[in-house]
Design a protein around this nucleic acid. Structure first.
Lengths: 127, 127
DNA sequence: AAAACATATGAACATCTGTTCATATGTTAG
DNA sequence: CTAACATATGAACAGATGTTCATATGTTTT
């Protein structure tokens, strides 16, 4: 996240001005890039991935998830909060229990693509 | 990543055994879930996201990327290593300079879906 | 071979992140 | 209202992560 004043990397010999001019305008603004990284950070934790996978099957209450994943209620609750803030998960209350479910289909697509990627690469690596 | 011996969360009243039995077999094994989280961790950093976006346009050498992102050569090189280990990026050497490019199309798909997600949610949030 | 250049890498440091523990909030039953 | 239950949350701690700095590796030129 830190930015240098001006990167003095190498002589401009290496830098190709046409490329620089072509790339710069295509870049989304900093805010979007930041938000995007934040979103993927949410996917970048085993516990949260497991929670999402569990919710693929059906909506579920906090204690069910905790039981399934063999973790404390507190840990799960903390992670659900993060998933909810990222709008990957939504909740509805029914009496004492709160049911969580997937918020939209991007979750499936993103995770699906991620899975494809690692499957493919593992195959290549171990063949 | 830490696992509890046995989560003593709530009475089994709340836990629905049918759900547990249904979900458990659908879960990918621990190794895949771990690898998947590791993959998304790679996407979960602004610098790396920016590098990937830059590479959407064309292959590029390290110092070009550093210049474009206004960061040190060292920082970029470290991040490129991570991207390469995740097989998101590949490199080819041409004399002194090393050119990096996207390794496959999952990168575009994943980032594209991520973008769609945040666009949609921002719209909903601010409407 | 030596100098110059592009890239890679190890160690150190500050920051961020996930879990735990204790406790607060919210809901229903008695 | 009180007790019991389900969930949420704040503080603290340990472990992970990204950048910097110094330096090493690899390549070309002279």
């Amino acid at each position: 996240m830190a930015k240098r004043d001006h990167a003095e990397v190498c002589a401009e010999v290496c830098t190709h001005p046409e490329i620089l001019e072509k790339v710069a305008p295509e870049m989304p603004d900093e805010e979007r890039l930041y938000d995007l990284a934040e979103l993927f950070k949410v996917f970048g934790d085993t516990t949260r991935i497991r929670i999402l996978y569990v919710l693929f099957e059906s909506e579920m209450c906090v204690c069910d998830i905790a039981e399934l994943l063999n973790m404390t209620q507190s840990a799960i609750s903390h992670q659900l909060r993060i998933l909810k803030q990222a709008r990957l998960v939504r909740s509805r209350r029914d009496g004492k229990t709160v049911f969580y479910s997937l918020d939209d289909d991007h979750v499936r697509t993103v995770i699906g693509q991620g899975m494809e990627h690692i499957e493919e690469k593992h195959g290549r690596k171990r063949a």
